[in-house]
Amino acid sequence: MITALELGLVYAIVALGVYLTFRILNFPDLTVDGSFTSGAATAAILITQQVNPFLATAAAFAVGSLAGLITGLLHTKGNINGLLAGILTMIGLYSINLRIMGGANVPLLNQDTVISGLREVAGVGWTSVLILAVVALCFKLAIDWFLHTDAGLALQATGDNEQMIRSFAVSTDRMKIVGLMLSNGLVGLAGAVVAQHQGFADIGMGIGLILVGLASVILGQAIFGTRVVVQATLAVVLGAVVYRLAIQFALNAGLNPNDMKLMSAVLVIVALLLPQWKGFRRIAQRRRGRSALQAAAKATLTEDAPGKKVG
């Protein structure tokens, strides 16, 4: 339970990164499968060479954003389809990640890591969960803030209406590259923390990560709503935690860990198909209708109130 919560909060940073591309830029970016491992590999190698773990984690952000830069350049300057650009970078990164690590994995046993630091301060328990929750919230708030700056608004508009924002003198190419760099930077950083959490970096740790990110974003937004950015990012963070808990329950219930990727895929498929199903739409409509009714009732009540007073 504690471990699942901790991991969920770390993966929340992945989910925030995926949210930036998938929701804000409307760009399905598969680079994350590669950049997650790149971040983990970079941090792991630096840590084994006695670099300060926080510095190593920051380096993972830089390497991740570099991966995003490549996908961005391929897509905008090279006119390569976004999905394909992401896949190309992801595949290329596989070899690069092996080069960085010099092998298929790098153990981090008995090394000073950000997680060993956390354990010294808080051990394994609710305190450590609380600290990680605060960290995840800091990232969420930073993204909230960024999306409301002049640059962030231009980023949002790029995903929303490209023609419009170009007519206001914004280079949509540049905004897409910025978004991809930021997103993959966050994913790389999360990869570094996950590696330190599990005690090793591994060449296969990023496989299927895009699904984890997507599942968190879709799950979170379905449960907690998306009305405004502040709410949407909170939903994404919570979605990552809920997803991790769901996986944990499934494993505790005796599911084979080897089936996990299939489960993630099925979960995302269900989340994407369900809203299209007529019966579901009817339920959603009824729910919306009811809330409209409630709102109307509330409005009439408040309007009635002064009248009653007079009466």
Binding site: T149, D150, A151, G152, L153, A154, F168, A169
Partner: peptide
């Protein structure tokens, strides 16, 4: 927010609140 975008036409878009 739309007006904030329009307001910045031709100016640098930095990290100040929109």
């Amino acid at each position: 927010e739309n007006l904030a975008l329009a307001d910045k036409r031709g100016a640098a878009r930095g990290l100040a609140l929109g």
